[in-house]
Write a protein that binds this DNA or RNA. Structure first.
Ligand SMILES: [Zn+2]
Ligand SMILES: [Zn+2]
Ligand SMILES: [Zn+2]
Ligand SMILES: [Zn+2]
Lengths: 143, 143
DNA sequence: CTCACACCCTGAAGCTACTATAGAGTCAAG
DNA sequence: CTTGACTCTATAGTAGCTTCAGGGTGTGAG
């Protein structure tokens, strides 16, 4: 299988596939006589695994950890379960942040009901005078 | 006021201040004889405005729009109100995405209750066999 | 006067996870 | 034998900073 077919099946571009290889997430495949990458079913499975993890917004670091566990079948899956719990924590933390942002933004939005001269706009005034507390430590990698 | 003091009051690093200047969000201040940046209260106000917008997760583009409105006091604040509504939409869209992720992650987590041999872990199996649909158009710049 | 030390300067590179481009090579069909 | 779809490498760009290297400035102590 060449890279275009692989990418099509796994729903990603050939550039992304090559990028994963450079990052060490996908192993280097064999090459044809013409220097084209030649993939087998095990590459497809691994790529789909990676894409599924990315669809769940895991980082490459998190994915790398999972792949390492799979590549070292001697150990158990404890690290996997723990990593998933941590990542669920990342999602929860970001949801909480965004809910608070939404709250603040809603309050700010109430400061101006209709178009006014700029000097009178309660939103702009609010943005000048807000006291945003120093952002605390982040417990998420999600933006 | 020198850059260190400005940054301390506005809760950001001197590098960030210089970065905002390079990006055109902060105007270039005067310089002392020794080529140090010298800021006045209007710079502090603008920097605090920017930091407050960033605390609400606005992009530099969004902030630039708001600053342009403030710098052209002839027009009304309609653009401001609209931009805030759009940005609240960005936050809402990201919250919705993350809620769905959380759901999927919760289901996946149930596939493995305790440590097992890697080959039996329901989480890893789930990650291999998931069919993540092609990610749809994004309505947010968050995350 | 001279030294240490805190602060400031510029420019470039690194971070994440890609995406996009340029310029060249491969291969099957017509 | 040429066209066109595909592939290759290497490089740069995205957002919003952070970090670093290699210097210059300014102030208080000895
Ligand atoms: Zn995570
Ligand atoms: Zn308004
Ligand atoms: Zn926005
Ligand atoms: Zn497990």
């Amino acid at each position: 299988m060449k890279i275009g077919e692989l990418g099509q099946i796994a729903q990603c571009t050939v550039e992304t596939v090559r990028y994963y290889e450079k990052e060490g997430l996908l192993p280097q495949p064999e090459r044809t006589a013409g220097n084209f990458r030649s993939y087998g079913p095990q590459h497809l499975e691994r790529l789909r695994f990676i894409r599924n993890c990315r669809a769940l917004d895991m980082t490459h670091g998190e994915i790398r950890t999972l792949l390492e566990v799979m590549d070292a079948p001697a150990a158990g899956c404890g690290r996997v379960n723990a990593l998933l719990d941590e990542h669920i924590g990342h999602v929860d933390a970001r949801i909480a942040e965004l809910m608070q942002l939404k709250q603040q933004l809603g309050e700010l939005r109430h400061q101006c009901q209709a178009e006014q001269p700029v000097a009178a706009c309660g939103i702009l005034q609010g943005l000048v005078s807000m006291e945003s507390e120093a952002r605390q430590e982040r417990h998420t990698h999600l933006g």
